[in-house]
């Protein structure tokens, strides 16, 4: 302790008071801030969030109405300039437009497209992890809290689904949704979902597909954690004073098992981002011209010999983003792991 204090006793009391107010989450967050790599990754991700929000003024026109215009991006993502196709970075047009990172095979500005692409990747990262966390947590909590018999059945179902080749189901689902969307004559709630999907440029069903795959692992973790906590004294105490099962699950168990689940979810985010890029790459992701990084790569990788920058720009963006999420995830895991803490 290098803090200057008047008396040793006071120092001890201050320290004790500080300790009492620290929840596990708060504690982990303080630990995380000490990790330089994680902090830098976090800042990078915050910048990406800022870009995703303000790449155009859709956030404002959503409320006020009117035409959307690019804010951070120099051009619209779909604007093609057929006089300037496949131009390398730092190309200037005759009327003074600058293509900082070059243009693609339709003469669209790569910088604008790559900036718009943050929207897709980040939305997938956030929504897919919320979907998988939501389903997995509730399923795992119920399974772990229920009687051994129910727990056994619920976990057998998870084991069963684990053996399924989800990749094939994702492909089948995506083809199904795409064909439905193309026909556009569905009825009722179906059409409502198809409209949502269309408005989101084909992202909605990717969320469903990714969420449907990934809750299984989360359910296992949540169940394991629930099992280890449900025999603890504080749960017993809560039951003794007459707390309902629902209250015990959500007020007492949930906050305690949240930490490991968040860690697992953060570590899964890069996988979601790559999965979206993969689906868009094989033509089952977002609808063109929505600029997903995976779609940008699939449109241009065959022109690698003549126009390598067209692949490199979205490729580097994709790699940096997954790298940042991985490093932040590692940092969060270390912060939650008390064995690594030097106290």
């Amino acid at each position: 302790m290098t803090v200057q204090t008047t008396t040793a006793k006071k120092d001890w009391m201050v320290e004790a008071a500080k300790r009492r107010g620290r929840s596990p989450l708060h504690d982990a967050f303080r630990q995380l801030l000490k990790n330089r790599v994680a902090v830098i990754s976090g800042i990078f991700i915050l910048i990406l969030v800022f870009i995703a929000l303000f790449v155009d003024n859709a956030l404002f026109t959503f409320f006020t109405g009117g035409e959307t215009k690019p804010l951070l991006a120099p051009y619209r993502y779909g604007t093609a300039n057929f006089l300037y196709t496949d131009k390398p970075p730092l190309t200037r047009t005759e009327d003074g437009q600058l293509f900082l990172l070059g243009t693609d095979y339709l003469g669209r500005d790569l910088l604008s497209r790559v900036l718009y692409g943050t929207r897709i990747s980040l939305t997938v990262a956030i929504v897919a992890s919320l979907v998988s966390l939501g389903i997995g947590l509730v399923y795992g909590l119920i399974s772990g809290y229920s009687s051994t018999r129910v727990d056994n059945i619920m976990m057998r179902i998870v084991d069963f689904l684990y053996g399924f080749p989800f990749l094939i189901f994702v492909i089948l689902m995506q083809v199904f949704f795409k064909a439905q969307a193309r026909r556009g004559d569905a009825a009722g709630i179906w059409q409502f979902f198809l409209d949502i999907d269309k408005a989101m440029g084909g992202m909605f069903f990717i969320f469903i597909a990714i969420g449907a795959i990934n809750w299984l692992g989360m359910a296992r973790i949540a169940r394991g954690q629930t099992l280890s906590y449900k025999k603890k004294e504080f749960v017993e105490a809560a039951r003794a004073i007459g707390a309902t099962d629902r209250r015990i699950i959500f007020k007492h168990l949930l906050p305690n098992i949240l930490g490991p689940c968040i860690v697992a979810e953060t570590l899964a985010i890069p996988g979601y981002i790559s999965l979206e890029a993969f689906l868009s790459f094989i033509g089952l992701g977002v609808n063109p011209p929505t600029p997903s990084w995976g779609l940008m790569i699939s449109e241009t990788y065959q022109a690698l010999r003549t126009a390598p920058w067209e692949v490199m720009v979205p490729g580097i963006a994709l790699t940096l983003t997954t790298l940042a999420f991985n490093m932040l995830g590692d940092g969060i895991r270390d912060a939650f792991d008390p064995r690594l803490r030097g106290e």
Partner: peptide, 22 residues
């Protein structure tokens, strides 16, 4: 290792082709 985990196949493949083949 963390770089290797992070770089997706659809990026690494074209990147390797560009360096080692082209």
């Amino acid at each position: 290792a963390i770089l290797g985990v992070s770089i997706p196949n659809i990026v690494l493949g074209p990147f390797l082709i560009w360096i080692f083949a082209v």
